[in-house]
Simulated scan of single mutants.
Amino acid sequence: MTSEAKDVEGETADGRTIAVVSAGLGQPSSTRLLADRLASAAVDALRGRGVEAEAVAVDLRDHAHQMVDAMLTGFTAGALRDAVDTVVGADGLVAVTPVFNASYSGLFKTFFDVLERGSLDGMPVLIGATGGTARHSLVLEHAVRPMFAYMRAVVAPTAVYAAAEDWGSGRSGGVDGLSERVARAGAELASLVAARAPAAARRDAADADPYAHPVPFERLLASGGQ
């Protein structure tokens, strides 16, 4: 069993990093708990494929004031800048929000509003939400999934909603059903992440100097300059 997402920024040298964004307000938080379980399932599935991976947590409650500042000024700084870099530089993303007024929380939406346009293009994303009743489960499909689709992320087919009863106990309780959904969603995210080039390799390609390996002059002459 893997441990919960680390509360540090960083990435594995040769493996993949899963950023884990949680918009829970309390400590402890059922939203963070669900996020950790989803991330653990994705990491386990990647390791099952022979791909080393780690999860890095981003608790949005820690950055609430800086997010408001960023919305007003247009600039991110300090710990918020580190959190943004963690998310946009990851190989995959787990994003979990509590349900407020039948939608994602303002804290959750504000963080993704702060990101620069295009920063999540092609990013594999697993979405989740928590709430007091299962009646709000469709918030993932009518609010959260469309938001990430608009940001051109690639959202895993299975979204996981955890209501209060899902945290119950007993053989006939909600735990088994939630565990199955978490495992399926984690496997889907792992498949999307494994199919994509590592983030580090993509950054190296983007940063490569196009003039670092010029074509020898003799070869240009031999090809008629073409």
Score class of each variant (00 low, 15 high):
Gly24Glu: 02
Asp121Asn: 14
Arg184Cys: 01
Ala187Glu: 15
Leu80Asp: 11
Ala149Leu: 05
Gly173Cys: 15
Gly177Cys: 04
Ile127Asn: 01
Ser223Gln: 08
Thr158Leu: 08
Ile18Tyr: 05
Ile127Asp: 05
Phe75Leu: 15
Leu138Ile: 01
Asp14Arg: 01
Val68His: 12
Phe75Tyr: 15
Val193His: 01
Ala90Gly: 08
Asp62Ser: 09
Leu120Gly: 03
Asp209Lys: 09
Pro210Glu: 08
Ala185Arg: 00
Thr130His: 08
Gly50Pro: 06
Val182Cys: 01
Ala194Ile: 00
Val96Leu: 04
Leu120Tyr: 05
Asp69Leu: 08
Leu107Arg: 02
Val56Ile: 12
Pro124Leu: 01
Pro146Asn: 05
Thr110Cys: 10
Leu138Glu: 09
Thr12His: 08
Ser137Lys: 05
Ala35Ile: 14
Ile127Thr: 08
Ala134Thr: 01
Pro216Trp: 01
Met67Ser: 06
Val94Trp: 01
Val88Glu: 03
Thr158Lys: 13
Arg135Cys: 05
Leu80Tyr: 09
Ala199Leu: 04
Asp7Thr: 13
Ser3Lys: 08
Val114Tyr: 02
Asp176Ala: 15
Ala90Tyr: 00
Thr2Ala: 10
Arg184Ile: 03
Arg135Lys: 10
Arg81Phe: 06
His142Glu: 09
Arg135Pro: 04
His213Ile: 11
Ala83Asp: 14
Gly26Leu: 04
Asp204Pro: 04
Ala90Arg: 01
Thr130Asn: 12
Arg16Ala: 08
Ser3Gly: 12
Ala194Glu: 11
Val193Thr: 02
Leu178Gly: 00
Ser3Glu: 13
Gly173Glu: 15
Pro198Ile: 00
Pro124Ala: 00
Pro198Gly: 06
Thr12Ser: 11
Ala77Cys: 06
Val139Leu: 07
Arg152Phe: 08
Val215Cys: 07
Pro28Cys: 15
Ala190Tyr: 00
Leu126Thr: 00
Asp44Asn: 11
Gly186Gln: 02
Ser191Lys: 06
Thr31Val: 11
Gly48Tyr: 05
Ala35Ser: 12
Gln66Met: 10
Trp167Phe: 15
Ala55Asn: 15
Thr12Gln: 09
His142Asp: 06
Ala129Tyr: 01
Val84Phe: 02
Met71Cys: 13
Met123His: 04
Arg37Met: 09
Arg181Asn: 09
Asp62Trp: 03
His213Val: 12
His63Ser: 09
Val20Ala: 01
Ala153Met: 02
Ser40Met: 15
Leu221Lys: 14
Lys109Asn: 06
Val51Leu: 03
Thr2Asn: 12
Ala134Met: 11
Thr12Pro: 15
Val8Ser: 10
Leu33Ala: 15
Ala41Leu: 10
Ile18Asn: 03
Asp44His: 07
Arg37Pro: 10
Glu52Ile: 05
Asp121Tyr: 05
Ser137Phe: 11
Ala187Asp: 13
Arg47Leu: 09
Arg181Pro: 04
Ala183Asn: 06
Val84His: 00
Ala153Pro: 08
Glu11Tyr: 06
Asp166His: 12
Ala200Ile: 02
Asp82Asn: 12
Leu140Gly: 02
Gly170His: 12
Thr17Ala: 15
Gly186Ala: 11
Met1Asn: 11
Gly15Ile: 00
Arg184His: 04
Leu140Glu: 03
Arg135Phe: 07
Gly131Val: 03
Glu11Trp: 11
Gly177Trp: 03
Leu33Gly: 11
Tyr211Glu: 07
Ala5Trp: 04
Leu221Pro: 09
Met71Pro: 14
Leu93Ala: 06
Pro98Trp: 00
Gly15Phe: 00
Asp14Lys: 02
Asp85Trp: 03
Thr73Leu: 14
Asp91Gln: 11
Gly168Ile: 07
Gly132Gln: 13
